[in-house]
Design a protein around this nucleic acid. Structure first.
Lengths: 143, 143
DNA sequence: CTTTGTGCAAACGATTTGCAGGATG
DNA sequence: CATCCTGCAAATCGTTTGCACAAAG
């Protein structure tokens, strides 16, 4: 299947990355990734599914979970855990922090540079750091 | 029911706090809180249940979830979300950060002072901070 | 044409709920 | 003794799985 009609740079990544891992570029995986690329609200699996199937049926319930797993495994998307029992997804895989509104539940990205002064050299001994992020909770401008 | 035979200061808190909210001090709520106080491995609901029912049946499956909810609502314990689909609990409600080992899944507390240099005054406008924590992932000393 | 992915429906695990009986204050 | 809590079992929610068919390369 040829997805090159979409001319955005980011979108080409899915083709490159999946192929490089020997995985197939299917319309379902493409739709999920593309949907996630064009929204910034960190949706759940179910929210993506509802959005994609709004007009015509695009993919099934089982496939959205498999697609999200695959996209996560190849590093195209990442999971965001800020709320009990809710797994959200983010197509922005470059390092950044997260804010969650305690009232409305909205999630916003916080630029990496915001905490550029954060130093982690005083960690308990024996721990080797591979990644970290700051989770901020509070109230957003609308609440 | 009289729980004062346990002489630790922390344990008295559950009586004070529950009573002040008009909630009852039951043996089940007490057992859950006490169990959580005496372990530092951030267990899941199911792990607490298994531990408490190891010898004699102490509480039921439904009750552990209700008790954890209640204890969270009154601020005696807090949830820790570091892993997809897994809700863990922590009786340490004073501010601190968390480390998770990507190999064995072990979770360790990181003292608040570790990131004392962290400043959050450059946040995107309109966000009011109420709490924050740093999530660190990597490898622990055993892995 | 071979292999991997999808759809469907059933299975599954964790958590929640309704209701009758039991314990708390 | 009135009310709140617990136990039980059934219900529910999100996610996973098995299998036959469909699509990708």
């Amino acid at each position: 299947m040829n997805f090159h009609f979409v001319m955005e740079k980011k979108v080409d990544e899915i083709i490159t990355v999946l192929k490089s891992k020997g995985l197939r570029v299917t319309s379902q995986r493409f739709a999920v990734y593309n949907n996630l690329l064009h929204r910034n609200d960190h949706p759940t699996a179910e929210e993506i599914l509802r959005d994609l199937n709004k007009n015509a049926p695009t993919l099934s319930q089982a496939t959205i979970y498999l697609s999200l797993q695959t996209l996560r495994d190849v590093g195209l998307i990442r999971e965001v855990l800020l709320q009990e029992g809710v797994c959200r997804y983010d197509a922005n895989v470059s390092p950044h922090h997260h804010f969650r509104c305690l009232d409305c539940g909205a999630i916003e990205d916080i630029p990496w540079e915001t905490f550029s002064n954060l130093s982690i050299d005083k960690l308990p001994t024996g721990l080797r750091v591979e990644q970290y992020e700051v989770i901020v909770q509070g109230k957003c401008d609308r609440c």
